[in-house]
Write a protein that binds this DNA or RNA. Structure first.
Length: 273
DNA sequence: ATGGCGCTCTCGGAGCGA
């Protein structure tokens, strides 16, 4: 089965891209970020016709997140935003997912982490507060749901391998020690960066600036991540970034990240052969 | 050196993203 995350940068604008992508890649679960629409504008009917049920949390102009599950899968115990963390911004949606593929249920958290603008700014301070609240809540979620996926636009690079120009971008937003320490603290709860469980091409990124021919020059960042719990790690068989939608006219600035999970655990590499 | 693109809200140009 397949799970994916994609920051679409306006679901209204990108709906044709999304429907095309789902037709070619009928993933079981998809987390979307930056819907940029209010709840009443969410294209639930078009997605249902494409074979997907959805839960969403939108707002005017900015942010907005959704979880999609391929029918006849289902979403239950939907949580919108972080419990106990007052936030006007629509950034988190979680659900217990029963996949269509027949795999046992998963707890899936889709998140659009704050950008942070610049170190030292008010928005950076908000990003740190938000990350503190997220981590405390994810710890509780993990205790209740060992089979957990946390995926989305993290707006944080894990390390310099995720940065096209690590020296030029040293300690700039998405690359600061504080942000990376927060991401490490999330991983320390017992989560694994699915992308780095597997050999990957060098200079693999998930976001490229619209300007300066950044995409054709592959000047990007890997800031969209899929973290999986200890219990799911033995099921992971592949994780890739699909650059194809970024090559289309009027693309999102982000590419989808796709995780493949086996229904049954796969042997650890040490036990092979 | 700066801003360079794209989206939203709204029809001029600002705010924001990353």
């Amino acid at each position: 089965m397949h799970l994916a995350t994609w920051n679409v940068n306006s679901l209204s604008v990108r709906l044709p891209h999304l429907l095309d992508w789902l037709a070619d890649h009928p993933v079981d679960v998809l987390a979307l970020q930056e819907l940029k629409l209010t709840d009443d504008k969410f294209p639930a009917q078009a997605l249902e016709q494409a074979g997907y049920a959805a839960a969403w949390l939108g707002q005017k102009t900015y942010n907005g997140v959704a979880l999609l599950v391929r029918s006849p899968g289902s979403l239950g115990e939907v949580q919108r935003n972080i419990p106990g963390f007052e936030d006007e911004q629509a950034r988190v949606i979680a659900a217990t997912v029963q996949p269509a593929s027949g795999m046992p249920p998963l707890r899936v958290i889709g998140a659009y982490f704050p950008n942070g603008q610049a170190p030292g700014s008010d928005r950076f301070a908000y990003k740190m507060r938000w990350l503190d609240a997220l981590r405390a809540w994810v710890a509780q979620e993990l205790a209740r749901h060992p089979r957990l996926v946390l995926m989305g636009d993290f707006n944080i690079t894990v390390d310099d391998d995720d940065v096209w120009d690590p020296d030029g971008l040293r300690d700039t937003i998405h690359c600061t020690r504080e942000e990376r320490a927060q991401l490490q603290a999330l991983k320390d709860l017992g989560l694994h960066d699915a992308f780095r469980l597997f050999p990957q091409p060098p200079k693999s990124y998930s976001w490229w600036d619209y300007r300066q021919l950044a995409f054709p020059k592959n000047r990007g960042l890997r800031i969209d991540h899929i973290l999986i719990s200890d219990a799911l790690k033995p099921h992971a068989v592949a994780c890739t970034i699909d650059r194809a939608p970024r090559k289309r006219p009027q693309p999102s600035d982000h590419a989808p990240v796709v995780l493949t999970l086996a229904v049954t655990p796969t042997p650890a590499p040490e036990s092979c052969g």
